[in-house]
Write a protein that binds this DNA or RNA. Structure first.
Lengths: 303, 303
DNA sequence: TAAACGTTTTTTCTGTATAATAAACAATAT
DNA sequence: ATATTGTTTATTATACAGAAAAAACGTTTA
């Protein structure tokens, strides 16, 4: 049976929305709420019914008004608002990156399903999507093998990343003056400087800036395969840094400075400097990642 | 429930194997058969039981002998030997490439399932894997959208293909004399010349040679992401040419000649000539594909 | 008369069930 | 002893079911 995470998240969001409204204020229409909450009208109605049930709003038909502010206890816990697919992804990445699963480990759908508390269908779906990340392989009728988050993996990943990034950076440099991307690049440069100024307090904000920077570079000449590859990088880095916080502030400060060099070279349209800065930045990113890979080797235990 | 396509294929293969044996000859052991047929011993035993049932072999325990040759009617039809997943793939590619599905078409799991005669699970599994091909996109809780086999798609595909191929060709050229790949390259060259000599009769053999050629080039410095990308190319070309036979002989002859130029340049270690030949070859391959793409445009009808 | 609501239909998501297959283990024969 | 077969167990592939969510359709109200 489907989970009701969509409803629960929408409900929590609706509580926030109600909190921003004065008492006795009337609510937006169902279709307006549907757009605001990003769910269908069907779900909006379910949310509204629940809000009424709990006395947060009252009314009927097209006259809903805010009745009272909800108690914090009314919110659904965060865990119940995340869809199964996302939970499986998270748990799997955790198993892989944090528990340092050994290369060669065979993945057992049933066991993972039990371990993650979901049905095998959910595991299967995830593994099928995840296959394109190059970390697992399918043996038909037999199962899956984890190839390991190895040095080799990181090197292959960065080889492609460098090819793609250099290619995009080169096309960026020759973009006509009229391109709106130049302005976006300048804004991004400012954001980097803002962040650097407050680095001690805001260093975790870097990841988001990083991924916006690299997608802006790619926007110079969009290619769906490059974008798809960046999705892989984004997911891997996201989870990787989630469990690998040493030196985060220091690392991010270095990366911001590298970005600034890179950004300045782009803004000067200096192709050679762009290439050098890009290479240098990727080199240090690669080294960071390499520090936490496992060595390729014979199969370890089971999943 | 699982289909028994593995058993049926193994059974057909076993018939071929028996046909190559004289009457009264004893059969290989179960484990030997398991290796030869590429299935587990469990399936081998099922095959053996069926063969006995039909009077093709007789005996018991470890003494099986060929009793008679099977009638052609004993074979299972080919359609029953292909797993659901492969059937879904084939039917979907057909829908997409042959029926020229319009860009923007929304894909309905239930409808495809009915149309293909499989359960929705099978469709879902395929779509999840197929997502990385860049032709479809998922809208959570809503469904899938087909982005179209458009000119844009072909151009983006070939941009990456060219980057990857040039990179591999460049590393190939500087491979040490001692590398075994040089010998394989020479063998491949000979095979090209053989095929060219008999082109009128054997022109369909080119695809297989083509994919072996490109994977040999990639073998110069293996990278899983490049290999994964070639899987995409291989699948697309495989189905594309299956329903697009015009000029096949002529096209393949041209491609073989291009390969030969490319091969010769590699064998001479002439980097510039390699690059030129590679570019030229990919250019004509791209043009062939472009001829059969559809134009990007607004959504058509439903799936 | 168009936006908002009420109702019905369709479709996705995800759990459960089961045959087919693989794999592990035990027994037997050469 | 070791390869081969017999038996049992574990796991995957795939169908099916049912609730959640979306979408379509119809009705009402301002």
């Amino acid at each position: 049976m489907k989970t009701d995470t969509v409803f629960k998240r929408a409900f929590n969001d609706a509580l926030d929305l109600v909190a921003s409204l004065p008492e006795r204020e009337s609510l937006p229409s169902e279709s307006a709420l549907s757009t605001q909450l990003g769910v269908s009208r069907t779900t909006v109605r379910k949310v509204l019914a629940e809000l009424q049930e709990r006395g947060v709003v009252s009314g009927v038909g097209r006259h809903w008004i805010v009745q009272a502010q909800a108690a914090p206890a009314d919110r659904f816990p965060e865990t119940e608002t995340v869809p199964t697919a996302a939970q499986v992804e998270r748990r799997f990445m955790e198993w892989m990156l944090r528990d340092n699963a050994r290369p060669g480990t065979v993945i057992n759908e049933l066991e993972l399903a039990r371990q993650f508390g979901v049905a095998t269908t959910g595991i299967r779906e995830f593994l099928n999507r995840f296959q394109s990340f190059g970390l697992i392989e399918k043996r038909p009728n037999t199962g899956w093998v984890f190839n390991g988050f190895t040095t080799e993996f990181a090197l292959e990943l960065f080889e492609i990343r460098e090819m793609f990034e250099l290619r995009s950076a080169r096309t960026f440099v020759v973009l006509p003056q009229s391109s709106p991307l130049w302005r976006q690049l300048e804004t991004l440069r400012d954001e980097h400087e803002d962040l650097l100024r407050e680095i001690d307090r805001r260093y975790h904000d870097f990841s988001e800036l990083d991924s916006r920077f690299h997608s802006l570079i790619n926007a110079a000449s969009p290619n769906r395969f490059i974008e798809g590859f960046y999705d892989i990088i984004t997911v891997i880095f996201h989870y990787h840094y989630q469990w690998n916080k040493q030196d985060e502030r220091q690392r991010n400060e270095v990366a911001i400075r590298e970005h600034l060099t890179y950004l300045d070279a782009l803004l000067r349209r200096d192709a050679d400097a762009v290439e050098a800065a890009c290479r240098a930045h990727l080199k240090s990113a690669r080294e960071t990642l390499l520090r936490s890979t496992s060595e390729p080797g014979p199969a370890g235990g089971k999943a």
